[in-house]
């Protein structure tokens, strides 16, 4: 049984078609990233899954329970943790009172353990909380009843880099324990770190769902190379090279003032023209190494293509 099953899900607000015939599944034990730019309809799907609003078409189940059937969904919610994009709590009360309320309804067998990882100031009133502390409190309440599925809308927004890393490690550990996670994001770097699979949403439509490795493999490596000499951009014309951009700078100008004018470089970084090329490479890495070997390299960077670039293919192409 899939933890989340979405079939032809549609939400038409009349003026906006926020979700257009979405179909996907999230398997048990999977961390699924729901990606897309702001306004793509990610939150609409999440709100429908949580029963905050009803779909205008299609259906969805959470842990096998129909989201439009209130009593079925309530049964599911005992095993579901939820973190909204902008968690908000009663300003007049302390964090502890909030957790006590949640505990009295859904349980809190993991509260203390979670508070040692995320540590919001429990005895302070919410009105005195920073954004990051509100987010921490939100994370604690989402996990405190030891749910089987956690749905999170933009979970790492508002966390500082240190907490973000803690969050990633925490999700990894939970995943190892069999937790299913459905999280949305427009911050791509956080997604590739924790997700097994992603779905990409654009203007209410699902563009693709695939394993994050496949997505990265398909998009290849981002190469930045600096070679000695004035080589043309066709120097790297081989299979699997995309979007080549080259520029040549006259090296050794500083040395010209000495009047040496020596063309032969005794130090690769100082003399002669240098050509810098950047491109995306999706071909056989051996071909690239052979081609690079024909040049005298000044510098070489090989990085995984940033997901932003990947998404440009999904978002960018049909944009007119």
């Amino acid at each position: 049984m899939a933890a989340i099953e979405v079939t032809g899900l549609t939400k038409d607000y009349g003026t906006v078609l926020a979700n257009d015939d979405l179909t996907f599944e999230v398997a048990e034990g999977e961390v699924f990233g729901y990606l897309g730019p702001n306004g793509a309809g990610k939150t609409t799907t999440i709100r429908t899954l949580m029963g905050f609003q009803s779909p205008t078409g299609g259906s969805a189940t959470v842990l096998g329970n129909d989201v439009t059937d209130e009593s079925a969904l309530i049964a599911a919610k005992r095993r579901v943790g939820f973190l909204p994009s902008n968690p908000a709590f009663d300003e007049q009360v302390t964090g502890r009172e909030i957790l006590d309320l949640h505990a009295s309804i859904k349980g809190d067998e993991r509260r203390e353990e979670l508070l040692s990882v995320f540590d919001p100031p429990l005895d302070r009133k919410i009105r005195a909380y920073s954004t990051g502390n509100v987010q921490k409190l939100g994370l604690v309440q989402a996990f405190m009843h030891d749910p089987d599925l956690v749905v999170m809308d933009e979970p790492t927004s508002g966390l500082d880099p240190l907490m973000q890393r803690k969050f990633n490690e925490f999700v990894d550990a939970e995943k190892a324990d069999g937790l299913t996670v459905f999280l949305s994001s427009h911050v791509l770097s956080e997604v590739r770190r924790v997700c097994d699979r992603v779905g990409v949403l654009r203007q209410g439509r699902l563009v693709t769902t695939e394993r994050i490795e496949d997505l990265l493999d398909r998009t290849g490596k981002f190469i930045r190379v600096r070679v000695a000499g004035d080589v043309g951009s066709d120097a790297f014309a081989l299979d699997g090279v995309h979007d080549v951009v080259c520029s040549t700078t006259e090296g050794g100008e500083a040395d010209d003032s000495d009047g040496t004018g020596d063309e032969a470089p005794d130090d690769a970084t100082t003399d002669g023209p240098v050509t810098e090329c950047t491109f995306t490479f999706t071909g056989d890495v051996n071909d690239l190494v052979t081609r690079l070997g024909e040049h005298r390299l000044v510098d070489l960077d090989v990085e995984e293509a940033p997901l932003e670039e990947v998404f440009m293919r999904f978002y960018g192409e049909t944009d007119v």
Binding site: G51, I74, P87, A88, H102, I105, K106
Partner: peptide
């Protein structure tokens, strides 16, 4: 209005 209802509705309680 203050977006607190989401938190309440996420609990296993009926509307």
């Amino acid at each position: 209005e203050r977006e607190r209802m989401d938190m309440l509705l996420s609990l296993p309680v009926s509307r």
